[in-house]
Design a protein around this nucleic acid. Structure first.
Length: 577
RNA sequence: CGGGGUGUGGCGCAGUCUGGUAGCGCAUCGGCUUUGGGAGCCGAGGGCCGGAGGUUCGAAUCCUCUCGCCCCGACCA
């Protein structure tokens, strides 16, 4: 591609509203342009990268035996009513009405459509297992789209759905997808980690997320220093904690004045007690019922775990005003479990606590020396909190958990028979009996991968593409278009690389070299070649790896082989995973 | 949805408080010079100041409504 005739609108300054690296750089490098909140046009250069991701995903899915289909983006409401999700999915579902007043939605996902296809076409166990995928534009009406492509409303997704006769069959398919995903992200040159995930509202029995590691990631993932345990924060569990080392001898129960000290920090500082010896009392509403939840002062409530432990469908943390209603007007900031009439559930980390501090249910007072059984009944204990760094690993004795940030780019699920049952998919087994197939579903955020790759690979000057995703592997800078020798060298190199199947961008603009350098850094092609100027006087071109390192010079005649060798070694290094 | 912010040429911004008919840098176009890390000089084009209504002799500026965009938002007891 020739820079001079292409739309590559680079920007010196990014619009103020772009904050994250990938968002800024995608705008500045001219990969995308916004059209509305959370919706973007992919410009030629951005589209090249997007297509590269797509190609990798498609090759690996095909290799794993999945069959590509393309389902409608617009889906009749009727199907979603059958699965029960028309009402359940909420406002993220973009709903449409056609000229006949019939209701549709723009598909955020395609379980209903694929399951409908399955019930029409699958009749016999002989057709199973079978596995379909598509790469398609999805729309989810996010509450708050942000970070550019990373959390847009419209995005490109690979979604796949498998049908097996039984759980054992699904295990095999699931395992194969787990491996396939690893291959895909390795080929993309991304540093990533598969983690155990909560199955959430979709339901099902097992689930893994694949996260690209990046400090700007929206998700927190915990992994063991010792074994291969890794899970997202929603799901991550801790091994049993040792009691706080500062646990004192038994103390009498005392009510102490703590005027105006409402926060854990304030109380801790005021009473000169470590925050791990305080107990936070949280009021929540589970399916309309109030509960008191207790977690240690230095821990955070995990609402998903709490909802599961309480056995409620939906857990709401009420507004302060509502808390007062639920507790009969007790002072927020001084709540405690002693003497409460509400059901109490405590985090397991508190099981070993004693002589702790909590609110006294009296304005401006806390209790100290609180001890289970003596001062209040032992409540039920359960895992209610987010793990913190250094918690013991739940799987192995030796490991400690570390927390990292990640960008979720893939998610695989064992769905079970939720959809196949709801929509009535049946096939005949060997005995001629009707059976409901077991489903799995497997998603990859194709467009998000492009943003995640940039998030993980950039510097102050611009993008540093992994070879596999770069819009072009090589960019040639024609140092001076008016120098016939430089021009001829650049053109020959351009043609030769092209002939070898290497993606190459030729910056043949009538611009100063400085501008071309700046743009080349911004665009981030893995290799940059300067044709002209100093080196060419000695019959050489200058080659620079975007990732860093000293520039090297190669005789013009050897430039192509040198470049190809470089690309291969880069590619090999990047796909180690 | 709640709270906050913001909307002025393609991008970044000033002007708004204190009303008098729009300006700066970058980008764009033309000319001359320059040519290895976002050049210099000269000249030019481009904005119904998000939209609607109102106040006023007069509105980017004041008032009301509305739309877009951005940021924050359970609790941290």
């Amino acid at each position: 591609m020739r820079f001079s005739v292409s739309l590559i609108p680079t920007l010196k300054e990014a619009p103020v509203e772009a904050h994250t690296a990938s968002h800024r750089l995608m705008l500045r490098a001219g990969l995308i342009r916004p059209l509305g909140s959370g919706i973007y046009t992919w410009l030629p250069l951005g589209l090249k990268s997007l297509r590269k991701v797509e190609a990798i995903v498609r090759e690996e899915m095909d290799a794993a035996g999945a069959q590509e289909v393309l389902m409608p983006a617009v889906q009749p409401a009727e199907l979603w009513r059958e699965s029960g999700r028309w009402d359940f999915y909420g406002k993220e579902l973009l709903r449409l009405i056609d000229r006949h007043e019939r209701e549709f939605c723009f598909g955020p996902t395609h379980e209903e459509v694929i399951t409908d296809l399955a019930r029409r076409e699958l009749k016999s166990y002989r057709q199973l297992p079978i596995h379909f995928y598509q790469i398609q534009t999805k729309f989810r009406d996010e509450i708050r789209p942000r970070f550019g492509i990373m959390r847009g409303r419209e995005f490109l997704m690979k979604d796949a759905y498998s049908f097996d006769m039984d759980a054992a069959g699904l295990d095999i398919t699931y395992r194969s997808m787990y491996e396939t995903y690893g291959r895909i992200f390795r080929r993309c040159g991304l540093r990533f980690r598969p983690v155990e995930a909560d199955t959430g509202s979709i339901g099902g029995s097992a689930s893994h997320e694949f996260h690209v590691l990046a400090s700007s990631g929206e998700d927190v993932i915990a992994s063991c220093s010792h074994c291969d345990y890794a899970a997202n924060l929603e799901k991550a569990a801790s091994g049993p904690l040792a009691p706080p080392t500062t646990t004192p001898a038994p103390q009498p129960l005392l009510q102490v004045a703590t005027p105006g000290k409402k926060t854990i920090q304030e109380v801790s500082a005021f009473l000169q007690v470590g925050i791990e010896r305080l107990v936070k009392t949280l009021v929540v509403e589970g399916d309309g019922q109030p509960y008191l939840l207790l977690v240690r002062g230095d821990h955070e409530l995990n609402p998903i775990k709490a909802a599961a432990a309480l056995g409620v469908r939906q857990l709401v943390v009420p507004e302060p005003g509502r808390i007062a209603e639920l507790t009969g007007g007790l002072p927020v900031g001084f709540l405690g479990p002693v003497g409460t009439t509400l059901p109490v559930l405590a985090d397991s980390a508190l099981e070993a606590s004693n002589a702790f501090v909590c609110g006294a249910n009296t304005l401006d007072h806390h209790l100290t020396g609180v001890t289970w059984e003596r001062d209040l009944p032992r409540p039920r204990f359960a895992d209610l909190r987010n793990v913190v760094a250094n918690d013991p690993c739940p799987r192995c004795a030796a490991g400690r958990l570390a927390l990292d940030r990640g960008i979720e780019v893939g998610h695989i699920f064992k769905l079970g028979d939720k959809y196949s049952k709801a929509l009535g998919v049946t096939v005949l087994d060997q005995e001629g009996k009707e059976r409901t197939p077991i489903m799995g579903c497997y998603g990859i955020g194709v467009s998000r991968i492009v943003a995640a790759a940039i998030e993980q690979n950039h510097d102050d000057n611009g993008i540093i593409w992994p070879v596999a995703l770069a819009p072009f592997e090589v960019e040639i800078l024609l140092a001076n278009p008016n120098d016939p020798l430089a021009k001829e060298t650049a053109e020959t190199l351009y043609a030769d690389l092209h002939a070898k199947g290497i993606g190459v961008l030729l910056d043949d603009r009538d611009e100063r070299l400085g501008i071309k350098f700046k743009d080349a850094d911004l665009l981030g092609c893995p290799l940059r070649v300067v044709a002209g100027g100093r080196a060419l006087k000695e019959g050489k071109v200058e080659i620079q790896v975007r990732k860093g390192g000293d520039p090297l010079q190669a005789p013009v005649g050897e430039a192509v082989t040198t470049l190809i060798a470089r690309l291969q070694s880069l590619l090999a290094a990047e796909s180690q995973g």
